[in-house]
Write a protein that binds this DNA or RNA. Structure first.
Lengths: 194, 194
DNA sequence: GCTACAATCTTATCAGCGTAAAGATTGGAG
DNA sequence: CTCCAATCTTTACGCTGATAAGATTGTAGC
């Protein structure tokens, strides 16, 4: 008789998926727990069986998106493992991810939501900086460059792609040219060993 | 008899000042019109005589902070007009501004608030990118470098300092070293003509 | 100096939000 | 089959941005 069952069945994942949809479409501002719950056909307070607070819900979504991002980077590495332009291709993947999903940039990096470990001295696995480090060692590791110089190069590279991502996702920055090629040029000019 | 006058006298500026205080201290999330109004000794609806909406209020504050930022950059240019390290010093001023005021970074650049023209093809005056361009012409203008190459260099420089600002203001990125010196090194390695 | 108007401010009031408490419903372990 | 724990609903609270109606006041024009 098509009556809605009292138990949703898979509410947690449903909430997260709906949340990601709304964020990708309208941004974090327009994301309210109540709307997400309603979209999932469930009452206001239902989400609180799965998340202690809205912040915890947001953190779960953020983790999900960060996983997608990390995945993109890892794929870029796998596809260019032995190429001399490994670093450049990785940087391009970094920026293009946010170019394709502008709203994800703010969501991942706005102060409020940074709960993910990005620390420089981290023993972290699978974080953006660590992935860049790995690729840099692939490129510069065989040279006799001192480690501290490589470290600086990695941070410069990180800053470059992070900044390009920020710029490329700004609403008022328009550039009629082909961003993808432009990004490639810019990264190439800096990321390649002189 | 110390009775509060019905008319505040300078409410608009009072609201903006109080808003900047709250943002610098707690960030944008904790900023409500009602709290700002109360802090100014005025009722809930009073701000609506000066701003049509909260967004308009936020925009006014953003303009104010952007002016402070631009001012910092202009000062850095004036102080290093004929120095070969002009670009580097300018970049350092760029990053250090946000290092000193981390909460301003999100506030200025979070998608929601970008109403300021940052476009690359802008005829804009006094915008960050234009200031960088001006300084770059000072450095590279006398060489026989093609304009398009200079343009790319400017964007790379912009991305670098924007990214460094983003990184330096991330909560979980800690770096025991002296950031100021580190930033100088990183920018120097890229911003100086080879 | 008086009057009338426009700007400013207050006092409700509304809908939407995050969240907590209390109780209804249900799947599943014993 | 029973009972418990997980899940969901209902209700309610305080805070928020915003609007409408009315009170107060500076000031331009006479």
């Amino acid at each position: 008789m098509e009556t809605k069952p009292y138990h949703h069945g898979d509410l947690r994942h449903s909430l997260i998926e709906t949340g990601i949809e709304l964020i990708g479409e309208y941004g974090e501002d327009k994301l309210s727990l109540r709307k997400v719950a309603m979209k999932c056909g469930v009452s206001n307070a239902a989400p609180y069986a799965h998340f202690q607070s809205k912040d915890e819900f947001i953190a779960a979504i953020q983790q999900h998106i960060m996983d997608m991002f990390i995945n993109t980077l890892e794929t870029a590495i796998q596809e260019n493992l032995d190429s001399p332009s490994l670093l450049m291709m990785l940087g391009k993947a970094y920026v293009m991810f946010f170019y394709k999903h502008p709203l994800y940039y703010d969501f991942l990096f706005s102060r409020k939501n940074i709960k993910i470990n990005l620390s420089l001295g981290s023993s972290g696995e699978n974080q953006p900086l660590d992935i860049l480090k790995k690729a840099a060692m692939q490129i510069f590791g065989k040279t006799n460059m001192p480690e501290s110089v490589i470290q600086d190069k990695v941070i410069a590279m990180w800053a470059l792609v992070q900044g390009l991502s920020a710029i490329v996702t700004m609403q008022n920055v328009e550039y009629t040219d082909n961003w993808e090629a432009k990004i490639e040029d810019i990264i190439k000019a800096i990321a390649m060993p002189c």
